[in-house]
């Protein structure tokens, strides 16, 4: 009886938390996310792209009934979740329309998508990327970027935010680059990863528990520099660049 009541309460709670969403059919394409704060990207095995609002969307004002939400770029909310989406062939661009709808947006991304995220806002929050096998292209000013269960290829930079990435495996399909100007870059990869690590720091240090091998140059020397060097893991593989301007780079094996 006690459990039954608990389940009923839980069900009620879940219904209260019902999420609003927008869906695009198709398992592949280009996904552009422009200036949307608080974004989570989650890998999906479904053949559709779904954008969910985390939690309940803020209450739509009574006065706005019969009106549409517009922004200075001429876009209006055509998703019903405070975003504008435009389509160009197989390419979808999402833009923030509302200044008030401060919820986190969760994008469920099929493998076949190529994801581009760009944000210049100091209020962008943390960009979470979980179990996404799609190729990633992230340009951020303030976001902290946290990745887990990712494979690459990817190019990610943030001026102020740190980058933390836990790779489930390292794809050999294309280069991987993680760069933060002012914060740490902290990466862990599986022990069997094959990669050419390019490790660069200006004012910080590089820390690692991986036995890297250092290739000889044409002049017969191994060029070792504490601030900028190349190290091969398991004989080398895909180009994998980790860079921090004013902080440290951490490279770990899982």
């Amino acid at each position: 009886m006690k459990n039954l009541i608990l389940y009923i309460c839980l069900l009620g709670f879940i219904q209260m938390q019902a999420q609003e969403s927008y869906t695009i059919d198709g398992a592949s394409g280009e996904l552009y996310i422009h200036e949307i704060n608080k974004v989570t990207l989650v890998g999906s095995n479904e053949s559709k792209l779904t954008v969910e609002v985390d939690g309940k969307l803020y209450e739509t004002p009574e006065k706005s009934k019969g009106l549409k939400l517009i922004n200075p770029a001429g876009y209006s909310d055509n998703t019903g979740i405070g975003l504008h989406v435009s389509k160009d062939g197989n390419s979808y661009s999402f833009r923030r329309i509302s200044n008030k709808k401060g919820n986190r947006y969760i994008f469920h991304v099929p493998k076949g998508y190529h994801v581009h995220y760009e944000s210049s806002s100091y209020n962008a929050g943390t960009l979470h990327i979980n179990d996404v096998e799609a190729e990633l292209d992230v340009s951020a000013n303030y976001n902290r970027v946290e990745l887990s269960g990712v494979t690459g290829p990817m190019a990610i930079h943030s001026v102020y935010g740190g980058i933390e990435a836990k790779f489930s495996s390292v794809s050999q399909e294309g280069p991987i680059s993680l760069y933060s100007v002012y914060s740490d870059v902290d990466v862990s990869v599986p022990a069997n990863t094959k990669a050419n690590f390019n490790l660069k720091v200006s004012y910080g240090d590089v820390f690692s528990d991986i036995d890297l091998s250092y290739p000889q140059s044409e002049d017969g020397f191994k060029h070792l520099n504490a601030k900028k060097f190349t190290g091969l893991m398991n004989g080398g593989g895909v180009d994998f660049t980790l860079k921090s301007g004013y902080n440290n780079v951490y490279l770990r094996k899982q």
Binding site: H114, H116, G152, M154, G174, P175
Partner: peptide, 8 residues
């Protein structure tokens, strides 16, 4: 090309 291909 894709971003990674262009970088490469």
């Amino acid at each position: 090309g894709k971003t990674s291909e262009r970088i490469q």
